[in-house]
Amino acid sequence: MCLAVPGKLTSINAGDPLTRTGTVDFSGIFMTVNLAFAPEAAVEDYVLVHAGIAIGTINKEEAARVMQYLAEISQSATEDDHR
């Protein structure tokens, strides 16, 4: 369900809140995306696009969590082994 793909916001076109759009770069594919639900998104941010609409902004700090969590559980596993 619910295919949503992250892409980089490269420009924002002015417009009233419901029709505000921006250009999003998906690794070389440029698409005009509605930004009504991503009012905080700025140029260079990555937005998550579903059905032509940004439904959220990718949190850069949190993006590394998947690897951090893996490092933490592996670390605790190593500590267990040494105990």
Partner: peptide, 23 residues
Amino acid sequence: MKYIDEYRVPRAAEQYVREIRRI
């Protein structure tokens, strides 16, 4: 693609699988 490819790294997947097996 940024924010996609990072989450498809086979080595990290292997590590996750090992950790899941362990617990």
